[in-house]
Amino acid sequence: MDTERAPRRDAGFTLIEVLFAMLILSIGLLALESMGIGAAAAVRRADVQSTYAALATDEMEQTLNEIQRTPPVVNSQNRTTASGVRVFRTITTSAVAGTTYTLYTIKVRVLPPVSGAGVVKSSDSINVTSNVVR
């Protein structure tokens, strides 16, 4: 009498089923990884733009302080920071009709370096404009 039992068909997974499950799992993990890379790039770009915004704000505050002096000593200027970030300040003046006041229009633009590791996108520039009557 034969005591060995025949193997059941539902006793486990076939090789094809295991390979298919691994394929689905790997596609899901790759999708998660690409989302992580995208999030890291977004964080980097936000960091760069906040740094540029701080530079533009600082430049604007310095310009406003220069306008408050008597007599005002302001002029347009361009400079490059130690990290290669370019800061452009343009000031235009015009007389306010019928008064002794002067209208100052201040434009500050901060651009990424021409080349180097700090460049994310050239569209990451920051523009700040202000009008002051004195």
Rank of each mutant, 00 (worst) to 15 (best):
Q49I: 00
Q49M: 08
A54V: 04
N78I: 12
A46S: 07
M60C: 06
N75A: 15
R44W: 11
L64P: 14
T70Y: 08
Q77N: 14
T51R: 04
S76Y: 00
E66A: 15
Q49E: 08
T63P: 08
Q68I: 04
Y52C: 03
A54Q: 07
Q68W: 13
V74N: 11
Q62P: 05
T57Y: 10
S76A: 04
E59Y: 10
A54W: 05
R79Y: 12
A53N: 06
E59A: 06
E61R: 09
E66V: 14
R69G: 15
V74S: 06
I67T: 05
Q77Y: 13
Y52F: 14
Q68P: 14
T63S: 12
A56I: 00
T51Y: 13
V74Q: 03
R45G: 00
E61V: 02
R45C: 01
V73A: 12
V73P: 14
T57S: 13
A54Y: 04
V48R: 00
N65W: 09
E61K: 09
A54P: 02
N75K: 08
T70K: 08
V74F: 10
A54G: 14
V73R: 13
E66I: 12
R44G: 15
T63Y: 09
L55M: 09
P71F: 03
E61S: 13
E59T: 10
M60Y: 11
T70E: 15
T57R: 13
T51A: 12
D58C: 12
V43S: 15
T51M: 15
T70H: 09
S50Q: 07
A56P: 10
M60N: 07
Q77T: 08
R79I: 02
A56F: 09
P72D: 02
R44L: 12
E59L: 02
N78Y: 13
A56H: 03
N75Q: 11
E59C: 04
Y52L: 07
R44S: 11
Q49V: 01
R45L: 01
Q49W: 05
P72K: 01
E59I: 01
L64G: 05
R44H: 14
R69S: 14
V48L: 06
A56R: 00
P72H: 06
N75R: 07
S50C: 10
